[in-house]
Amino acid sequence: MATVIHGIKNCDTMKKAFAWLAEHGIEHEVYDYKKQGVTPEMLGRWCDALGWEKLLNRAGTTFRKLPDDLKAGLDRDRAIALMVDSPSMIKRPVLERDGVLLLGFKPEQYEAFFQA
């Protein structure tokens, strides 16, 4: 079963997820979307599975620094465009295993995800 963790390697939450995966002996690939990029198709699939409202990190500095006109009236397509232009706006990590996605990191959620 291939496990891929998508995010930004230097992110503190990503580091916690890496540590959890290592501690539990779960082999995984890392996809750093800040370095490797992210496509509208990838984000569209994630939005369909997770919801664009959850995927877009509105609490992050990158989003908060946007002009108000770009933040107003957001919808799925505009959110995807923002995330493609600035991958830092994507909540992380996005964990993928056998086509199933999990957003964010909480040890208890990872435990349940890998027991299923």
Rank of each mutant, 00 (worst) to 15 (best):
P93A: 00
M89E: 05
R92V: 04
Y110G: 03
D85G: 15
I90L: 06
V84A: 12
V84E: 11
R97S: 14
K91N: 15
Q115N: 15
D98A: 11
F114Q: 01
E96S: 07
G99A: 08
E108S: 08
F105M: 03
D85S: 15
P93C: 01
L95K: 07
V84G: 12
R92C: 10
P87Y: 09
Y110F: 15
F114M: 00
F114K: 00
D98R: 06
E96H: 05
Q109K: 13
F114G: 06
L101N: 05
G104A: 03
E111W: 06
S86P: 04
P93E: 00
M83I: 05
V100K: 15
V94C: 08
L101W: 12
M83C: 13
R97G: 03
E108N: 07
P87L: 04
E111H: 06
S86I: 03
E108L: 05
F113I: 05
L103P: 12
K106Y: 08
Y110L: 13
R97H: 14
L101V: 11
P107Q: 13
F114V: 01
P87W: 04
D85I: 03
P93M: 01
V100Y: 12
R97T: 06
R92K: 10
S86V: 02
L95Y: 02
E111T: 09
D98W: 11
F114D: 00
Q115G: 15
G99C: 13
E96K: 05
P93L: 00
G99K: 02
L101M: 15
D85F: 12
K91Y: 02
E111D: 13
Q109L: 07
Q115S: 14
M89T: 10
Y110M: 06
M83A: 11
K106H: 15
P107G: 04
E108R: 11
D98N: 09
L101E: 13
I90P: 06
M89S: 13
M83L: 02
S86F: 10
S86E: 14
G99E: 15
F105K: 01
P87T: 00
I90M: 15
V94A: 03
E111K: 08
D85P: 07
F105R: 00
G104C: 00
P93H: 01
L101H: 08
A112V: 03
